[in-house]
Design a protein around this nucleic acid. Sequence first.
RNA 1: GUGUACUGAUUCUCCAC
Length: 321
Amino acid sequence: LVAWTIMITAFADTDDADGAQEFFDRMPQRDFVCWNAMAAARTHSGQMQLAKMLFDKMPERDVVSWTLLVVGNAEKGLVELAEAAFSRMPLRSVVSWNVMVQAYAQNGYLETARFTFDSMPMRTNISWNLLVAAYADAGQVQQARFLFDAVPDKDPVAWATMVAGYAQNGYLEEAQEVFEVIPQKTVVAWSSLIAAFAHAAKVESARRVFDLLPGRNLYTWNSMLSAYSQNGYGTQAVELFRQMVQEGGTMPDPIAFMSLLTACNHVGLVELSWEQFVSMRNDFGIDPRQGHYRCMIDVLARSGRLVEAEELMATMPFAPD
RNA sequence: GUGUACUGAUUCUCCAC
């Protein structure tokens, strides 16, 4: 039973809810944990109607089942339904409360989120961290900082969240100040610092941070790549991309290619753009998404190659916008 | 004592200016 549930979760982690369902259907017997795992798989792939069906069919529902219902509705923007599920729950764990705070915050009800946070019977680090992040996402950096200062035992996520909050809102100095005093600097904090410099157009500094940080990963490569591309350093971006693949042994993702194409675009390197665009699928097996097409069409059109631009637009597997 | 729910970093989009 445990092994089956692990399989279901593994499929869910790769966004394959149907694969999870196949396992679920073949299970000799089921307990509420595997029902929940299956409901979570549907919930996280956005299939709320199926998730709700599972919820209704469950022989028994525990706090996890109910919390999943809150999450699912919240992610679909259905705050009232999330709220209804939350109030109908027979029992609420701290996770349920966290989820409800998040539900309000992510749907624009920051005040209600705060009120709910204040009424929580107990809090974890996650409760604090998610609200700090919510304030920062809403551009309320001072509020974020104020709450951050009140966090009792700041974990590495809290610190990274605050640096990221400053970075995203263009507060370079504050981001640096917080970063300096972080007890355990995670790679997330490092990459946020790169972003902070990048948004302030301090590309050299961003690069210095990139060279200093321990443990490069896809995010740090991408952060540096976008630092170059957003500031018009086309050739550096291309070179960094090459290093990422060849020396870093990192598999680029669609985001890396967005930065790369944007970088080529800024420099007007049409041929190079096209090369990368083709290479995406041929060498890396990544199907270009709408953003990649848009970027590529833009490069072509700007350089006067209107026929090719039109052709690409006509053959792309998306509706033109 | 094992399996299921919640938080942080990179591009674009959206929104605002």
